[in-house]
Design a protein around this nucleic acid. Structure first.
Lengths: 192, 192
DNA sequence: AAAATCCATTGAACTAGATTAAGAAATGAT
DNA sequence: ATCATTTCTTAATCTAGTTCAATGGATTTT
């Protein structure tokens, strides 16, 4: 069960089998059915979760009830509210499974423990958050500078498998457009 | 000259005078005139800069020459291209002073050095990047969910001093709207 | 102090995308 | 199988924001 996550963290730095064993022993495996909330607004996020199998989304609901999707996570992605997790403050986000999921969970104290025992993991988590920041910046730029159709095509290119697995209106929400307009874009693309 | 930055990093964790001395000794102070490029697309970012005095901006130019401002930095902010700095890869961003600036610079190797000698600084930099991620996420959400006028008012509230100091079209670029439209929003607000 | 450049405003014409409403297709539940 | 719910599409109308162009005010530059 751990080969997958071990291979993944080894992409950042090399670890000895010893170190990976410590890591694996600290992870907790859990499964959740489709449409389960892993986190709701107001709760403190007590996990960083590695997706072994399945698919989830992080989203935000604004004052008017309008939903914005911040992240999709499929196999080999991490999902969490990093700010809430690290500072142990109430979250403004929701995290919900979109398929049955198997996750490997790391609790705050356990993470501390890991970093203390295998400091090299600092690097893994720093890279994670850095990549997240870069991706979010790129998305912000795209949202400002590109029209919806280009953003959609870029999404398909970047996440070819995700777009097969999830309802289309989630993609619209991620792109920051209405589901109706996404439908029109698709019709227009198909016509060619 | 260092009281300012020392007070600032002390907000995250407490440091002994000893530790702060090590930190200060590794910083390089430089001044730059207005409209100087600290970083240009294609270059590898070799600094994380703390703004002692002055004002700078980070921006991106897309394929059509369209400019998007990612960050403003005034006194007590850090400015850098974190991804380029950490991975020593070419940057896609520009960083330019908007006023005469005094900066305290940290080079990649020097930062390594600092983290090795005073590991507690890991926390300072982790908090920095985390705050950056949260801010970028909030901006993305705002850009998707809020109309331009609300974003502008939120900007004024969040950065009351910045809006006094910089040309208005930069604010428009930050908000993701045309300068003309910002002008109209302002006229509408003033009319009330 | 004049010239040159940059900056902000205004208005008219236009467009990308939202909203509303309705029906069709797909998926799930009993 | 069928009923219900969710999802996708299409079309009409509407609006927030863009683009273009013209003007006057500020700043720099010489």
């Amino acid at each position: 069960m751990f080969e997958q996550i071990n291979a993944n963290v080894t992409k950042c730095t090399t670890f000895s089998q010893e170190e990976l064993n410590i890591f694996d022993a600290l992870l907790v495996s859990k499964t959740y059915p489709k449409k389960t909330f892993l986190l709701q607004e107001g709760e403190v996020c007590n996990f960083e979760a590695y997706v072994v199998k399945g698919c989830a989304r992080t989203f935000y609901i604004d004052d008017n009830g309008f939903e914005v999707i911040l992240q999709f996570a499929i196999e080999d992605w991490w999902i969490s509210d990093i700010a809430s997790f690290n500072d142990q403050t109430p979250s403004r986000l929701f995290i919900e499974t979109m398929e049955d999921c198997q996750l490997l969970l790391l609790a705050p104290q356990t993470k501390e423990d890991l970093l203390f025992r295998v400091p090299k993991f600092e690097r893994v988590f720093r890279m994670m958050i850095q990549r997240n920041l870069s991706a979010t910046q790129n998305r912000l730029i795209g949202n400002i500078a590109q029209p919806a159709q280009e953003r959609y095509l870029a999404f398909l290119k970047k996440y070819p498998t995700i777009s097969q697995r999830i309802p289309q209106h989630y993609i619209a929400s991620y792109l920051g457009i209405s589901p109706e307009f996404l439908s029109k874009i698709r019709a227009k693309i198909a016509r060619k």
